[in-house]
């Protein structure tokens, strides 16, 4: 559905997009994950022809994307990072206006607007002006304005920024429903939990480049980390820590605030070996947690820095 090849975008000496290539298929929820300034929004703006670029190719629905590709634009819905609505209009009027840019038939539009209002659950706020809405409701209105015309492709650029957890969950559920109804979704975020929860395929961006892409499983398979074990221990000396590090399958051991944080490889048996070691050396321990690797771990291992750095 979206084909981006070797996209290069420069702001003076700064390379915002460094030969970025993406292939987004019909029906998927594609996540663009990366820290702030990684080039996510620039990529989206180039894809939508809001920004010119220095080199590369962009195709949407099999056609070259240009500022006057109005037929393609008719089937795209966009939810911007910032809330883009008229303060002067009510919730209903706002959705009706933006839907009206795509749908001219009045009765058809009325039906779509009502559906969009139901979809984002703003039925009780139809006559409210945006200034009277909370941050979460405002975000939902922003989404309704972008999707009311039932586009085939919906691009959401960090739609949950500064939203409370309850509203965030509602937004994510809504996006999943849109996808089930047949829309292809492109979702950008720097929240890895959201991308993990929502996206079927993910591209991780850093410094304008795709550093990894694939399904969650494929991404996690790219790294050596298999499991992160946290053990509440009473005390341990430096020599014992060193011995732990030398156990088979253990990648690293850290002693942080009376907790042992052990990263192990993908081979099974690391946890048993660690517990045996603690018993043998009579090191008292309490609760034990085990976590599978996250996208943050993928990002950390590939770039050497945290996603939210």
């Amino acid at each position: 559905m979206i084909h981006v090849k070797n996209l290069l975008k420069r702001y003076g000496d700064l390379v915002a997009l460094d030969h970025l290539s993406l292939d987004i298929k019909e029906g998927e929820i594609f996540g663009l994950l990366g820290p702030n300034g990684s080039g996510k929004s620039t990529a989206i703006n180039c894809i939508l022809s809001l920004l010119s670029f220095d080199k590369g190719e962009i195709e949407i629905f099999g056609k070259k994307m240009t500022p006057d590709a109005y037929e393609s634009k008719r089937n795209i819905g966009i939810v911007m990072q910032n809330v883009a609505v008229f303060d002067e209009l009510t919730v209903y009027e706002n959705i009706d206006y933006f839907c009206g840019l795509y749908v001219h038939d009045k009765s058809e539009r009325k039906r779509l607007v009502e559906e969009a209002i139901d979809f984002v659950e703003l039925g009780n706020f139809k006559k409210f002006h945006p200034k009277k809405l909370s941050g979460g409701l405002l975000r939902r209105l922003n989404i309704a304005c972008g999707i009311a015309h039932r586009p085939k492709l919906i691009i959401l650029d960090e739609p949950t920024v500064a939203v409370d957890p309850q509203s965030r969950n509602k937004i994510l559920e809504g996006i999943a429903r849109l996808n089930k109804q047949g829309a292809t979704i492109v979702y950008t975020s720097h929240y890895m939990e959201e991308v993990e929860q929502l996206c079927s395929r993910i591209a991780i961006l850093d410094k304008g480049r795709v550093i990894a892409s694939g399904t969650q499983e494929e991404l996690k398979a790219m790294i050596t980390l298999g499991e992160k074990i946290t053990i509440e221990a009473f005390s341990i000396n430096e020599q014992e820590l060193q011995q732990l590090r030398e156990l088979p399958g253990v990648l690293s051991v850290q002693w942080i605030e009376k907790r042992l944080v052990i990263k192990s490889g993908k081979k099974a048996g690391s946890l048993e070996a660690v517990l045996d070691f603690l018993k043998t050396h009579e090191i008292g321990f309490g609760r034990i947690y085990s976590e599978l690797p996250t996208l943050n771990d993928v990002f950390l291992e590939i770039t050497g820095k945290q996603l939210r750095d």
């Binding site: 109005y70 634009k73 910032n82 883009a84 933006f98 795509y102 972008g146």
Partner: peptide, 18 residues
């Protein structure tokens, strides 16, 4: 000035309206 707001302009640019 309302219509010149950057976010609203971007919405208009993204729409099929010339």
């Amino acid at each position: 000035m309302v219509f010149r707001r950057r976010d609203l302009r971007m919405r208009h640019y993204c729409s099929p309206l010339k």
